[in-house]
Every structure is written in structure tokens, then in C-alpha cells.
Design a protein around this nucleic acid. Sequence first.
DNA 1: CCAGAGTATGAGCGAATGCTCACTCATGTG
DNA 2: CACATGAGTGAGCATTCGCTCATACTCTGG
Lengths: 318, 318
Amino acid sequence: MKKRLPDPEESATDAAARAAWLYYVGGLTQDQIATELGVSRQRAQRLVSKAMAEGLIHVRLEHRIAGCLALEAELKRRYDLKTVRVAPRLGEGADPTHAIAPVAASVMERFLRQPEPQTIALGTGRALRAMVEELPKINCEQHKLVSLIGNISPDGTASNYDVIMRAADKLNARHYPMPLPVLLDDPEIRRSFYALPQLKIVALLAAEADVTFVGVGQMSESAPLYVDGFISADDLREERALGAVGEIASWCFDSQGRFLESRLSRRVGGLRPGGREGAHTIGIAAGPEKVTPLRAALKGRLLNGLVTSEQTAEALLS
Amino acid sequence: MKKRLPDPEESATDAAARAAWLYYVGGLTQDQIATELGVSRQRAQRLVSKAMAEGLIHVRLEHRIAGCLALEAELKRRYDLKTVRVAPRLGEGADPTHAIAPVAASVMERFLRQPEPQTIALGTGRALRAMVEELPKINCEQHKLVSLIGNISPDGTASNYDVIMRAADKLNARHYPMPLPVLLDDPEIRRSFYALPQLKIVALLAAEADVTFVGVGQMSESAPLYVDGFISADDLREERALGAVGEIASWCFDSQGRFLESRLSRRVGGLRPGGREGAHTIGIAAGPEKVTPLRAALKGRLLNGLVTSEQTAEALLS
DNA sequence: CCAGAGTATGAGCGAATGCTCACTCATGTG
DNA sequence: CACATGAGTGAGCATTCGCTCATACTCTGG
């Protein structure tokens, strides 16, 4: 008595997409959708929210809010940046990462839409992960995605914030992950890893990247590197004693935006953000705890592009 | 006691955009938005719906529904088309133009995203108008928009469905409208119009267009040309007697998709859709009354691309 | 300065929404 | 074969939304 459903998973998403289309584009009420699809109202509601949850629905605001534009202009001038986008505030308690994600995605999309092959380097972190989540599906087989940082957690599993796989999945682009732990304690092993031909390719690509997207981590007690278990409390203390106020792709820098040479920096399994001459290096970060590291990174010209939130932009300028 | 508001118009849209951002991206309730912006709930509601009405919010579905994909593939094969998009059905009573508009816009966007200068020719009609309405703002100064058809109504006003101005406005592209009535009754006047140098430029551009977007009109009693008062009942009868089943940019064709030479065709103030060798000619049309003209146009290879609705696609294939 | 018209604002209310809870049914396990 | 488990389903209900109406306010012309 089976009728259709070659793949129950697929057809569920299909129905969800259909319901969402009727809801958002058609403007039908959920009752009408239920009638249309021949299901109960509750099911229609669930389909719509499923479509939402699966990110099938992308909402875009076609208007640059004046207040944010002013902040962008001022940031651009003050820090001599090439690219700046400021996302409007999303209420007090809201997660700023959530606010900047769609804006960051639209910045990345501009590069992805180029028909000329682009090499796009990616760091990691919550902000980048959220950005990639907001990307639409585009066919980008002409581009290359390259990871700046190892994707192996200390416990041996692939890192949760491994953005490059997700991105490559959505974009159908060639991708070059770093088959490397985030930190390599033994310098000998580190050297031998770096000697791998695959790694050399990745390093070469990253050095010639047209654009690099990175998160920016604070080095306070809430340092993501520490909270996520990549570095120990001792490591953190040591770096802070050396003046570290932030990190980009695990490379710590001080309040002047100078990368630190330290015990930790000699263990990092990854590449410094760089790229070819004139390339874009865009930081994606927002939140009060990011103000100090962002200010340092901008001062040291570690970044020439920025996507942040309205509050963070104000703080950076104050 | 004035505080800000340099331009009340601007700041209203700004507030609307902010409210819409909070609503759609932040997922706040309208009460929360009201608190956030310091206005009443009703005002928040009005801001959100204003943002909607002004088209600040664009919703996109990131999923190609399986059933529609199948229809696209079949249409592509059957009529040997280059581009086909089928929009999912939007309930029985819904306006099919509304359903296809966002899909058509995304097709057009693909061309607009090209950095190489494109020449894009546009017809008129409700479907094209709706498509343009759904376009996002993109800076396309490298492209040229050229109109295939005059924009002057019989009553002397600029036509309501003048899509090219709207499009150019959104895209910041150079545009070449046809400063010409839709129909020119006096052949002498027509000749002298065509001799105008401006018109020659437009004709040249249209003939070299990379892509042409046109609506497809039926020639039944509900013919848009007739309903909108461009042609008389006598004209309509005469064309139908000659076998006309549809029209593209006012050029009538028969059931085999052959353009008719007729009294009417000698009065048309416009250009035939054409374009350079290998160009795209994409028809945007949906609805039961479009099935006959679409089938004819496809048979006669007047189009090599199509954006239509699920129902229309099914009808075309049955 | 006043009068009138058109527009923005806030209250109220019915409809729509989404969340929770109890239930069913299919699947897998002892 | 009985039973546990868990995903999916439908009903009820509190919340939220969007529409209408009465009112206040502003702008313009006399």
C-alpha cells in the first residue's frame, strides 16, 4: 500500500518547502495551507516551522539603515578599511552573533558571485559558523575554499565549528581543509605535519587568497580558545602575561595588534591570515567582549574589513 | 524642540527597516519591538507592515521542490530550452503572476550579477512588472537596460506597466526606454519616429541583447492588449481571424508560433525580441489563459527560456 | 486667526499562531 | 509475543497579530 515517498526525509523537506512557499510568498494562512496540502492545520504549522528551522527560508532586508551607514563610514575612515558592514541592533539581550550572521553572509556572497575563480580562506568560530549557516545555496565550482586552521579538536573529533565543510557543502566549491589538530604540542610532529605535500598546497592557496574571513577571539577569562578546551588555563595565563588581548585563528596578538611569538604560537596548527597583495581580510565579530580585541586588531591592521553589530561599532568608535 | 528627522520620509523608512529587521531577523514580538524602539505596539505593527509593503523584506526559499524540478526538466527537454524555472503552486485562487515573480526575479538576478556588461532587453506587462518589483537593489552600472516597446499609452500618459524605469531605478543601470507610443496608427509618423537617432540606438542595443525578458499575452477576449485599451475590439477580431493566439511585445503570432504580418503589426511601435546569436529570450508568464499562447510561442521557438507556474507547466506538458 | 481636510495615533477585538500535552502507532527488544 | 521507546499527530489554549474605528493632530487655505 506504499504510494510514493521514495525518501521520507526528502519528501518531508519538500513538503516543508512547499508549505513555507505558500506561507511566505503566497501569504496564505496556515489553515489554507492545510487545506491546500491536505493535512491538518497543526501539521501545516509544523511544516512551516520546520522549513524555518532547516534554514530553507532566507529573509533579507533591502534597506541600509541610516544610523548603521554612518557607523560604517566612520569605521572605514578611522581604521582605513576596505569593507565595513554594521548590522542593526537586535535588542538588548540578543546574541550579537545572530545579528551579524546574515550581514556577513551577504558580504561573502558578493565574493562568491564573481565568475572569476576566487580563493577564499576561512578561519573558524561561532561567528563564521553562523555566517555560513546563512549563506544561500550557490553553485561556486569556480572558487576554492581553504581553511586557515586545523579541524581536529583536542579530543580527536572534528571540530564543531568546522565551517569549511559546511560552506563547501552549500557552495559546491573545491575545499582544502587542514587535516591537522588545532594545536600540536610536539614541535617535531608539527614540523613533519607541515612537511606534508597536502599542507603545502593549502598554505600556498591561503597565501594567495583573494579574501579571508576570520573570527576574532578575546583572550579574557571567557576566551573561546579556553572555553572550548583548546588551550589550558595555564596557556591562557601565559599568553595574557605576554600582553595577549585577542586571537585570530589561534594566533594571539597584543593591544597594538602585533602577533605574539610565544610557546603557544609555536604550537598552533594553522596558518596566519594573509592572502595576496591587496586581498581582503575581513573580521566577523560582535559583542562587548570583542571590543578590545577588535580595536587591537584594527589598530595593528590585521584586518582591512569588518562585519560587526551596531553596539560593537559604537563601542569601537567611542 | 526638534531633535532629529532631517527627512521625515527617510526616517520613517529607516524605522520601518529597523522594525522589520527586529521582527524577521531578530524574531522579536511586536511588543518587544515597540519597547525597543520606544513606540506603541500599533506603531511597531505598522512599521513592520510598511516595510513589507515597500518591499524592504525579501523572502527567498532555498529549496527546489522536487515536483517543480521534474517539470522543469521535462519542459527543457520537450521544447529544447536553455532556461526553465517553475514556481510552486500557490493555492487555487491565487494570482499566478504573484507566484512566478520572485522566481523570475532570481533568474534575472543571475544575469545582473555578471560583472561583464550585459545588455538586457525588457518587454512589458504585469508579469514583468511584478518581476521587477521583486528585484533586490543591486548596483549594475555596467549593464544596459533597453526597452522593446513604447511606453506611451493611447491616452498619452506613460504606461503603467513601464518596467524599465522601475528596473533602472533599482539597479542604477543605464536605460534606454522607447520614447514612442505603443501603437502608431499613421505609417508616416511611424517611419519618421523610427528614423530618430535615439531610436536607432535602442534598436541596435536590442538586436545585440544578451538576454531578453518578455511577457506573453493571450489574444482571447481577455487579451491584455485589448483590456488595457491598446487595441480596439476590431483590431482584436481581425488578428484572431488571421490566426493570432498570442503576442509578445505586441507582436502577434499564430498557433505555430509564427509572427503575423498584419495591419496591426504595421502599427506596432516597438522592436521584435531578438538579441545576439545565442542570446537568451525568456518568457515570463503563468495562468490558464497563457497556456495556448505559451505553447505556440515555444513551438515556434520564439522563446528559449521560460518562467512559469506549476499549474501552467503541467498544462503545457499535458 | 479660524475652519476644514487629510493623516497619524491608540484602543479594542476577532482571527491566526505556536506551544503544550495526551495519545497513537510503528519499531525494536527482552 | 508482550512491552518499552520514541517519533509523529491532533486538540486545547494562551499569546500575538492585524484590522477597524473613533479621536487627535497638523497642515493649508481663507
